[in-house]
């Protein structure tokens, strides 16, 4: 098959939030595309041709190419990861497009994800959110036996559903407000449904939301585009859970005590 690609080309890192001027859409014709190719393999073929012609190949993030590392992801015809539901860009195959299709390929667009080059964006904001509290504060050591705390299967399954998040950022890219609430909600939900995670639930909810806000992500207006494009099909239920946890944490929060605590004991 033959396709026409319109790809965002940008040679340097965006320096300001409004980076519309930093690059432009460039059209490429690509022939002999096999329906069995993955979308990224199709880009590989394009890059081989560009390199041979002496043109700079298109930069895009990718690594595992089996849908789990979360590195890859481009917006294809306005939809992050393209037209197939529950699929990462690396697992999208060209059989999903018709012969002669015109395909628009753009990077994630969000102020919190500045473009580094072409289709490569900086998603370190996600890491910083996780660093603020998406963990259980246990050190490596000798915790109790793994079976000491039974976890109802339904809870474990819910935690798992949220924990499958691959951190690709498609939720942010799809959101008209570039909100990261599906991502952050998934972290809250993962730990909320496990007894190990409940110990720090209030602090976690407060810190994650504060970190998310500080990164400049937008706000959720309940349009649920994030859910539609999430390659792991994480439900918007996790956002509701985060909202609840945050409100709850704010309601139960006490001002810091002025009494002296502890002592030399």
């Amino acid at each position: 098959m033959k396709v026409t690609l319109h790809i965002w080309r940008q040679s340097k890192k965006s320096t300001k939030a409004d980076f519309a001027q930093d690059g432009k859409m460039v059209a490429y014709e690509l022939e002999h595309v096999s329906a069995d190719m993955s979308f990224l393999e199709m880009l590989d073929v394009l890059n081989e041709q560009l390199t041979k012609k002496g043109e700079d190949p298109v930069a895009f993030d990718h690594d595992c190419r089996e849908g789990v590392c979360g590195s890859c992801g481009v917006v294809i015809d306005g939809v992050p990861h393209g037209p197939e539901r529950g699929t990462t860009t690396c697992q999208l195959h060209m059989r999903s497009f018709r012969d002669g299709a015109s395909i628009y390929v753009e990077p994630w667009r969000a102020a919190a994800f500045p473009v580094l080059k072409d289709l490569v964006v900086d998603r370190s904001a996600f890491d910083r959110v996780v660093q603020s509290g998406a963990f259980v504060s246990v050190n490596t050591g000798a915790p109790q036996d793994a079976n000491a705390i039974p976890v109802p299967k339904a809870d474990a399954d819910r935690a798992f559903d949220a924990a499958t998040c691959i951190g690709c950022g498609a939720c942010v890219a799809a959101c008209k407000n570039a909100s990261a609430m599906l991502f952050v909600g998934a972290k809250v939900s993962h730990f909320l449904h496990l007894p190990q995670g409940r110990v720090e639930r209030e602090q976690r909810a407060r810190r994650l939301v504060a970190a998310m806000d500080a990164e400049g992500f937008g706000n959720c207006t309940n349009q649920y585009e994030c859910e539609a494009v999430c390659p792991k099909e994480i439900p918007v239920r996790v956002i509701a859970e985060m909202n609840r946890e945050f409100v709850r944490s704010k309601l139960v929060e006490e001002p810091p005590s002025t009494k002296r605590v502890g002592g030399d004991g």
């Binding site: 319109h6 965002w8 939030a17 409004d18 980076f19 519309a20 859409m25 917006v75 015809d77 306005g78 939809v79 628009y104 753009e106 667009r109 969000a110 102020a111 919190a112 799809a174 959101c175 008209k176 407000n177 570039a178 909100s179 400049g216 992500f217 937008g218 706000n219 207006t221 309940n222 349009q223 649920y224 585009e225 859910e227 539609a228 494009v229």
Partner: peptide, 26 residues
């Protein structure tokens, strides 16, 4: 909130699409 949302997504896509958001929500 609307201002913050606009700031968070300053650049539109060349090809915009909506998958499941309702007209009312948008």
């Amino acid at each position: 909130l609307s201002r913050a949302n606009k700031q968070a997504r300053p650049v539109p896509y060349a090809s915009e699409a909506t998958v499941q958001a309702t007209f009312a929500s948008r």
